Simulated scan of single mutants.
Amino acid sequence: MYITITPQKLGGNYSQSSADFIGYLEKENQGLEQVGMEHFFNQYDDGIAAEEVVKEIDGNTAKLKNKEPKFYSITVSPSKYELARLQNNSECLKRYTRELMKDYVASFNREVGGRAVNLGDIKYYAKIEHQRTFKGTDKQIKENQPYATKILTLKNEIRKIEKGYLQGSIRQLEKEIAKLERQAPHHQNGKRIVQGMAKAGDQSHIHIVVSRKDASNSFSLSPGSKYKASEVEMHGKSVKRGFDRDKFFESAEKTFDRTFGYNRNFVETYKARKDFIKNPNMYFNSLMRLPINEKTIAFKLLSETGMPIMGSIPTSQAQVALKVFNRLRKGLDIAIKSSSIGI
Rank of each mutant, 00 (worst) to 15 (best):
L83E: 09
N118M: 04
S340L: 06
Q183S: 13
Y283E: 03
S216Q: 13
P223H: 11
S218W: 02
G331T: 07
T296G: 00
R85C: 09
V194D: 14
Q172F: 14
A116K: 15
G236K: 05
N13H: 02
D20R: 08
K80E: 13
H235K: 15
S79W: 00
N156K: 15
K9P: 01
R115G: 12
Q188T: 04
S107Y: 00
I297S: 06
S338H: 00
F299A: 11
P78V: 04
F108K: 01
E38F: 15
E33F: 03
K323R: 11
F325G: 07
E294Y: 09
A84V: 13
Y14R: 03
E231H: 01
F260T: 15
F134R: 05
K295F: 14
L100S: 08
A106R: 10
S211L: 06
L93R: 03
E129R: 07
A148G: 08
K175M: 11
S211P: 04
T61P: 02
K102F: 01
I128Q: 00
K80C: 07
I206Y: 04
Q43T: 08
Q188M: 13
Y104A: 02
R115K: 09
N42A: 03
L100K: 00
Q87H: 06
Y125H: 11
P185T: 06
I336H: 11
I334E: 09
E56G: 10
G201R: 00
Q131I: 11
R327F: 07
S107C: 07
P280Q: 01
G120E: 04
F134E: 10
G331H: 14
